[in-house]
Design a protein around this nucleic acid. Structure first.
Lengths: 193, 193
DNA sequence: GCACAAACGCAGCGATCACTGCAATCCAAA
DNA sequence: TTTGGATTGCAGTGATCGCTGCGTTTGTGC
């Protein structure tokens, strides 16, 4: 409740401390509940019980299920996506798309995304993007440093990120690697290999 | 909209009857609550109170907030989107994109989409797509009848639908008409006007 | 006009939720 | 080791939720 956003991990993030363990346990519990159970039991007491923590703790540190989901989504979608470096723009983008497709194709991840969008509000939805666009920008920047002329970040987002998210969230179509490769192929001109 | 009669409104869809009025009132109440209040008060009693209906009625007809949201989203996103017919593929797609951008740009609509994704599960997310892809397919089919060679439905979905939904749901960027026009321009080859 | 079925309103039940003082515990610094 | 601040556990409260019989009203067919 005390500025959930910044200070959630603020005073309680000394690695190895009890706070950090509680935080990790709660995060795991959220993922488990979101994945296994129905969405209508996604409540603080249930999560706390799954985490082996008292509900009071969760109420005090996060306050709302929405804030908790946004926090989980933030730490889930930031930092674990390594920016590929294959040497070519096309290779980087394809690798990027494959990784993202694999990630969003995971039912657990998808359930977390959907729940976070619904309950986490505006910042929850933003947390689901995480650092994806930053990673994309890094790829384009590297190509620029190589002397190439990559498409704009906006075009790349529209052409690669958006279809992956849309198909994952709104449809039940599979996120195949062939389709992901097509997305990159349609974005880049066909002249180079 | 005649399709909706099959499931939820089955016995209660005689136009003008009391059931239909209750249904409409509840649907309006859902939209109001989703738009104005926080998402955590999106509960049957609150919706029923807003609609001037007893909660028992809502429990019996819909059962769950998720089912109710899916029903609202279904009737909201099916039938109200007229397929444009401007005479050219580009004109049709641009008009389609403009309409969709305007629709998804509405905060109330967006709130409904987000809530439905979160609470309505798989079918809720599918309901948010509604008949959009069918409308897109109609546009492409008309171009095909004209003798043209429009892009595949999958490509059009990835190039127009997906970016619109992604930007609306996951970002706070505005859905401008210029950007929507760009989406169509990037999808179609530049040779024709 | 009458009877029948469906839908709705009403009151109340158990269960759960969100939240709050107070005590105990833990971690870090002196 | 001791001290101080912060975090967590505990028990309890009011409020709300989801749901269920029962009576009433509405709309339709005879």
């Amino acid at each position: 409740m005390t500025a959930t956003t910044s200070s959630t991990s603020g005073t309680a993030s000394r690695p190895g401390g009890r706070s950090a363990k509680v935080r990790a346990a709660v995060h795991r519990a959220v993922q488990v509940v979101v994945s296994e159970d129905s969405l209508d039991v996604l409540t603080i007491p249930v999560i706390a019980a799954r985490a082996g923590v008292h509900a009071t703790t969760v109420y005090r540190r996060w306050g709302t299920v929405g804030d908790l989901l946004a926090d989980v989504a933030t730490s889930r979608f930031t930092g674990d996506l390594v920016v590929p470096d294959t040497g070519s723009l096309r290779g980087d983008l394809e690798r990027y798309a494959f990784d993202l497709a694999k990630d969003l194709g995971d039912p657990d991840t998808l359930a977390l995304v959907r729940a976070t969008i619904g309950t986490g509000g505006e910042q929850g939805a933003a947390a689901c993007r995480g650092e994806r666009e930053r990673g994309l920008d890094a790829i384009l920047e590297r190509e620029r440093a190589r002397g190439g002329q990559p498409p704009a970040l906006e075009h790349t987002t529209d052409g690669v990120l958006a279809p992956l998210y849309y198909r994952a969230v709104f449809t039940d179509l599979p996120l195949t690697t062939e389709w992901a490769r097509d997305l990159v192929a349609r974005l880049l001109p066909d002249d180079d290999a």
